[in-house]
């Protein structure tokens, strides 16, 4: 199962600079029809053809699920990343044709919740923009707490406040405003589900605070939006297909495997879903595990790697691909 086998030909119908770091891209079907219905929290994978290099990056859909004439994603520019966001910011223009995937939801609402309590940090706001639209259209009860650096980077805070009024709570670092999480958690009605999307440190903080307050893990939902990190190039032998590949500095191992013509399964491309898990046949060197999937035992054993985000430094690596 993979997004790549169900690709949608799309046209970029709008590019909006939301603030100094974030741009929003609108996609419509090239054939003019409606895009597939989706649920709040879903992402799409955008294929970027940058000269001879192909990158596939996941981005949360932030348009309302009620209107599928277009899909909208908001992308924060990452000046030290592998270049996917830079490509989107610098090279993608109105009218460009791009290939996107069907929506996939790995961060869906638990519809049993009596109330949805959402905590966002920075660009982690995007899935909540779609989820709050979905909930507001029905009878969904929600409350959103959103931490930002300053007003200039409070992406969509104005839009969310206009749509949802006092259900939106904003915290600006430069104004010394802080989220009193323990108090917010303590005052929720029974049956509330907690959702968090933001930097890794924030996710850990929210999960730990909730656990300390006695929240069951089944009621705490989180989405990491970590992209693959660049790193030193390394060589890999793919034993099943008998191919030697080199993974470039700004390339993920998964992308290098795909560039060699292989078609491994994937869903999230962010080290979360487990689809691309690959067996290691032998290695001489050090793994740089960046995923949220493998257990500590898996890592210790040296028998598995998640090629979407993890890397390797050393003499040789042989994978079962």
């Amino acid at each position: 199962m993979k997004a790549g086998s169900n690709r949608i030909e799309a046209v970029v119908t709008n590019v909006v600079a939301v603030n100094e770091l974030v741009k929003r891209f609108h996609f419509e079907r090239a054939d003019g029809g409606l895009l597939p219905t989706f649920s709040g929290g879903a992402h799409i994978v955008v294929e970027m053809r940058d000269d001879e290099k192909t990158r596939l990056n996941p981005y949360s859909l932030m348009s309302t699920p009620l209107d599928t004439r277009d899909y909208r994603v908001s992308i924060r520019r990452d000046d030290v990343g592998r270049g996917g966001s830079l490509f989107m910011h610098r090279k993608v223009k109105l009218g460009d044709r791009m290939v996107i995937s069907n929506p996939v939801n790995l961060f869906s609402l638990d519809l049993r919740a009596k109330k949805h309590l959402m905590i966002a940090g920075g660009i982690g706001i995007t899935p909540f923009v779609a989820q709050t639209s979905q909930l507001a259209a029905g009878t969904g009860n929600f409350e959103l707490h959103y931490a930002v650096r300053n007003d200039a980077l409070a992406t969509y805070a104005d839009v969310l406040r206009e749509r949802h009024g006092s259900r939106i709570h904003l915290y600006r670092d430069d104004h010394g405003e802080t989220l009193d999480l323990a108090r917010v958690l303590a005052t929720q009605p029974l049956g509330t589900h907690l959702y968090v999307c933001g930097p890794a440190g924030m996710i850990t903080w929210v999960r730990n605070t909730a656990a300390a307050a006695g929240w069951p893990a089944e009621r705490v939902h989180f989405e990491h939006f970590a992209a693959p990190q660049p790193g030193r190039p390394f060589d890999v032998r793919l034993a099943v297909s008998g191919v030697e590949i080199q993974v470039g500095e700004h390339e993920s191992l998964l992308e290098a495997i795909e560039a060699a013509g292989l078609d491994p399964p994937y869903l999230c491309r962010g080290g979360v879903c487990g689809q691309c898990e690959t067996n290691v046949i032998s290695h001489d060197g050090k793994f740089l595990h960046n995923d949220h999937w493998l257990s500590e035992e898996d890592r210790q054993s040296g028998c598995k790697i998640m090629p979407c985000v993890s890397r390797f430094e050393g003499k040789s690596l042989v994978l079962e691909r």
Binding site: M1, S5, N6, F38, N102, P265, Q275
Partner: peptide, 11 residues
């Protein structure tokens, strides 16, 4: 179960 949980829309 692993397969079904990863089943995607449109497939």
């Amino acid at each position: 179960l692993k397969f079904l949980m990863a089943l995607q829309q449109g497939q």
